[in-house]
Design a protein around this nucleic acid. Structure first.
Lengths: 229, 229
DNA sequence: CGACTCCTGACAAGAACTGACAGTAGCAAG
DNA sequence: CTTGCTACTGTCAGTTCTTGTCAGGAGTCG
């Protein structure tokens, strides 16, 4: 195995874990000595990878995604950049910042000719959209609840203007064309329900919900799309 | 300079050109011997890069984009995948195929944990959209005209149902939420105009238009968005 | 044909990599 | 405080890899 291949493996190995890894473990997996692992790690660090080692613990990597070298066709690259354009139009602040960041990172590493091509895409999104209705509850609160898998109690005004208070288990945020929608299991209705975020008047966090989000999401998808496995 | 860094440079150098490059030129740019260039090229080929050398000519690369190793934050990765989801919903056949391809390439190289995270995204697009109105003229014809910078003569039915025949210079395809729109300079109106593709009854290719698409696109953007430079 | 180019093989000098060992220092738990 | 675990660094010799040079075969174009 060449050294560069090993560096890639090492990086993927690090991103593939949540808990700290010791150099000895890495050495065993990569079939090299510990000393070499240390050398490789410092090589990665010198190339800008933020890997943090702590004596007595092991190595942890800043959470994030590592994308190894990749060849895309022109159409595929166009699809990626076009997609980021859609996110710019529809996403909230977090997502639009993320899409700008992704676009900057991607275009900055392209060759000059590729940059020129990317600047004048064949396909484009529609014109800028009107602003989304304002939210009483910041989206960040829903994000946190989804990430930490916590129930929330919300007061919700439905399309007819009637207000209800419910406890829901939020599993996903849907960025539709004209509204942002919280997808959640509703304890009141005992079913998955959609809640437009601009109609959620208030929200307060409760205890963790009793099932894993992954499983809830699977159920939700199975209901909406029985054909997919 | 390390070998892997040189391989990256070599690849960027190749993607940065349209016309064939000789090994001697590459050797001069990279400050190594020709022999090493040959070795590096075969190394790239063994890693899946489609580089073609022809005796007496030089090297050309299959057109495409090469993405060097890249770190994305979780949000950025989410934005990219979410964007591909939007493209899936709004793009035509070419774009949806491209977005599937891009998604497959990206997810296939992620580490297991990253794959798992990517499968249950926090943000998602809206539900599937209704189909777009059918086109009389296949979008591929517009793509070709845009790529080759050719005028086309179209018969167009406007919103009031009146039909006109015009010669236009197509510069972009806009994939809006409810329709696909051809952006073009209209010789009849002497201005940029939008044409819904489902209202274009027929189209035939004419001679090249007299200005470069890049310049037209710049003008078009300046008109619509005077603030940006 | 001649000029140019891609492409391969062999080989030796040099560079880079690797493992082993020794040693320092930080962290956590008993 | 001690013990155990771990990150980290330096050194050195053996090994592997990389590179340039040279030689030669074969395809392409004018």
């Amino acid at each position: 195995m060449s050294r560069s291949a090993r560096l890639l493996l090492l990086l993927q190995n690090l991103t593939g874990r949540r808990r700290p890894v010791t150099a000895a473990q890495l050495a065993a997996e990569l079939q090299v000595s510990e000393r070499t692992v240390y050398r490789d790690l410092s090589e990665l660090a010198s190339q800008g990878v933020r890997v943090e080692g702590e004596a007595g613990i092991g190595y942890v990597l800043k959470p994030g995604f590592f994308l190894p070298p990749l060849m895309l066709t022109e159409d595929e690259a166009e699809a990626v950049l076009l997609g980021l354009g859609y996110v710019d139009q529809r996403g909230d602040e977090v997502l639009t910042r993320a899409s700008s960041g992704a676009r900057a990172k991607i275009t900055s590493v392209l060759s000059q000719r590729a940059k020129d091509t990317a600047k004048v895409p064949l396909a484009t999104t529609g014109p800028p959209r009107p602003a989304f209705p304002a939210n009483s509850v910041p989206l960040a609160q829903f994000r946190t609840a989804i990430r930490t898998q916590k129930k929330i109690e919300i007061s919700y005004v439905n399309a007819e203007g009637r207000s209800t208070v419910r406890v829901v288990w939020p599993i996903q945020l849907s960025f539709m064309d004209n509204a942002r929608v919280l997808v959640a299991w509703c304890e009141l209705r005992e079913a998955f329900r959609f809640f437009r975020t601009d109609r959620i008047q208030s929200a307060s966090e409760r205890e963790s919900y009793p099932r894993r989000r992954v499983d809830l999401l699977r159920d939700f998808r199975a209901q909406n799309n029985p054909s997919e496995e």
